[in-house]
Write a protein that binds this DNA or RNA. Structure first.
Lengths: 342, 342
DNA sequence: AAAAATTGCGCAACCGATTGAAAAGTTAGG
DNA sequence: CCTAACTTTTCAATCGGTTGCGCAATTTTT
């Protein structure tokens, strides 16, 4: 029993009126008589009429869709961001179109173009790790599409941005370890080319200095891949090298977990012998044994803030106001769990 | 330096030709002279012209967008499904619009309507846990929109479906435990109202029977919430009740982890004393200590299969062929890790 | 050189809604 | 009974592309 897809014209034809009357009737326009409105609404209901928003978008030059491009989706952080964005978008009556760049700059370019082709009313984007050229971003910004970058942002373009305070997060993590009595804190650092790595490293160093603990470069150990096996391997070799330490601040949770597994395997106790704090607070972290302390980067918050900023911008552009890009820094929270409490 | 949004008419005006010529020139239509084509292409490039796909969609009654509605996105399984869907969609030249119903049937209804309003060319959907009425689904199906349900499907509607073989997965998990020498296997079961719970329970029972082990109802312990705390609490009370058992097959990974943590806390060794297998193979499972054996429900596969089925249907409808709904069952894999290997 | 074929391009309708302005239709006032 | 003043409805343009058809201008054929 397949129904057709009805249009206003169909309703108009059946009632012997014009489609403009139908349009106004459905919108409860005062010009239309109650009688006509009732008839139109009744028939629309019967036909299960639903408006074609493509036509609307074309007419109004407004699609009520915002786009979001993320490098990955199987990732708690980005999934949370999307979730936050969605909640704001729903409230504003917008739909969300999602593209996944898969960490590929080429895909990212294609995605941005597709988003523009669909005439999204605004775009949220977190760059791939490899993105160097920003022509595609400039192009869409020049066309007047409101754009907000989040988390993985670029300094080379003047748009609104929402980032987390990596420095502050690292500072809190390290400071917490010191407060727990740690004197020699290892930092498992991330890849050099990402600014978040250096920010976290600096936060670590600053926290030590503020606590009058000298920074020892031997305690700063690179784990650029950020994989479990790398961390496990690295940690084992550190332990075997007899380096003395009593705490670990890892660049991310996976690294922390790898380190923790290595420690346990070699008979070290967490947190009694070594306290550990990670970064990112993946969902799994609280499920570990012992549960891992971590810096919570609230993806939801970032999503919400980014979306809010985007809608603010969309509204100002609609009113032809000048919009000056803003950078919003979202603070992180330290989630204290057993892995760091002595 | 804000550029405007140019249309074909703008190009036509600048070159003193008509927009139909521009349209054909850009599509490399044979009717147009090379000279004109070159001029058009050059100007289009300069203006950074990008077509408005809303207009295209309206004209062709085809949006080149497919929709997907998931109950959650901060969830490895659904994130993987989306990822699989995206990859197929990209190949087909389609964009993906995602809605998150947040386990709310009301939201789901709104989402389906929004998808139809946007005139998606097809829709993928996994129902919320609470969805009872299917009017919204029937409505969009009746309008001729190809639709495929995945994972959380309903038996009360005749559409294509992609599901995992929960029975088979549970069977494999249980059989594996038996092969490892377990004689008394506890099943931590899921909520009664979901068919996946009963399928998994039946798989468990069947595996025992096939191995000539009697099913003992005392060993079937409900963990309907599927939360960590519930599982931990439940497991502790079981141990304290002195119930004898040497293996656990949990309805999902979180439950398995909760149980594992409880066991370790009460001095039981995994896998030596008790072997454990979970279900779902969350990303975290391999990071645990010991890594958790689990049934991998390949979200990516389900996404890929669902999308393929959808595109098949889209193509057949385009050719006015009759399409008979298909149900595709995707097999699960047992991922053997330390938690179950004696 | 006239007729036929080919080439290159423009006109106008169309997709499905919105909306200002014009045109009916209705009622009231003089 | 005529006109002004409403009320209600229709017309037609518009959004940005696509496309069948027609029409010149040019080239080829006879």
């Amino acid at each position: 029993m397949r129904k057709a897809q009805y249009t206003m014209q169909d309703i108009a034809n059946q009632l012997g009126i014009s489609k403009s009357t139908v349009s106004r009737a459905l919108k409860n326009h005062p010009d239309i008589s109650q009688e006509t409105k009732d008839a139109v609404n009744k028939l629309a209901e019967e036909m299960d009429y639903q408006p074609n928003s493509l036509a609307l978008s074309l007419r109004h030059k407004k699609s009520f869709v915002i786009g979001i491009i993320v490098p990955e989706i199987v990732h708690d952080f980005f999934a949370n961001v999307i979730s936050g964005v969605q909640s704001v978008a729903y409230e504003e009556g917008y739909n969300v179109m999602i593209c996944i760049s898969n960490e590929s700059p080429e895909q990212e370019e294609v995605d941005v173009k597709a988003m523009y082709s669909s005439r999204v009313d605004g775009l949220l984007i977190s760059l791939t790790k490899e993105t160097k050229k920003l022509k595609h971003i400039e192009s869409i910004v020049n066309k007047g599409v409101p754009l907000v970058m989040f988390d993985r942002v670029s300094e080379n373009i003047n748009v609104s941005k929402v980032i987390t305070d990596d420095f502050q997060g690292a500072f809190m993590a390290t400071d917490h370890l010191v407060k727990q009595g740690c004197k020699k804190i290892v930092h498992l650092s991330g890849p050099d080319n990402l600014s978040i790595s250096s920010l976290r490293l600096n936060g670590y160093k600053d926290a030590l200095s503020k606590n009058n603990i000298p920074v020892d470069d031997n305690l700063i150990i690179p784990c650029p891949e950020g994989t479990l096996s790398e961390a496990t391997k690295t940690m084992k070799s550190i332990i075997n090298s007899n380096l003395e330490f009593d705490g670990i601040f890892a660049n991310n949770d996976v690294t922390a977990i790898g380190a923790m597994n290595a420690l346990k395997e070699l008979g070290k106790k967490v947190p009694e012998d070594i306290s550990i704090v990670g970064f990112g607070d993946w969902r799994l972290s609280q499920l570990l044994d012992p549960p891992l302390s971590s810096i919570e980067q609230s993806g939801i918050n970032i999503g919400v803030e980014s979306a809010k900023l985007l809608f603010k911008q969309i509204k100002e552009e609609e009113n032809d106001k000048e919009f000056t890009p803003i950078t919003k820094v979202v603070q992180n929270n330290l989630i204290e769990r057993k892995s760091s409490i002595k």
